[in-house]
């Protein structure tokens, strides 16, 4: 069991290390992730949402729907824990 775990983990490790070969270097300002979508967030966030904190702007506005999903996840987990642990009471 442990041997198999080690083998599979190493395999995935090799895969991961192989994958990182083509990744843009750490802190590279030319990285595509920095120059496509993020560009607009940085330049327009203040105009679009009147928020200085870009993370907040994205979290609550551009991708606010993700945050709704995030809240749903917490809600789900809450009801799930309720379902699992609670005995008695009204719910």
């Amino acid at each position: 069991m442990k041997i198999w775990a080690l083998v599979s983990v190493l395999l995935i490790g090799v895969l991961l290390l192989w994958a990182e070969g083509d990744i843009p270097a750490f802190g590279d300002p030319m990285a595509p992730s920095y120059n496509y979508v993020a560009d607009r967030y940085i330049s327009d966030a203040h105009n679009d949402t009147a928020t200085k904190n870009m993370v907040t702007a994205i979290l609550a506005d551009y991708r606010g729907y993700d945050t709704l999903g995030e809240l749903t996840v917490i809600f789900t987990a809450g009801v799930a824990v309720l379902l699992l642990l609670r005995r008695g009471g009204r719910l």
Partner: peptide, 12 residues
């Protein structure tokens, strides 16, 4: 500024 999007994703 650093890229804000991954921060948002990771908060979620």
């Amino acid at each position: 500024y650093v890229n804000p999007l991954p921060h948002v994703l990771i908060l979620t």
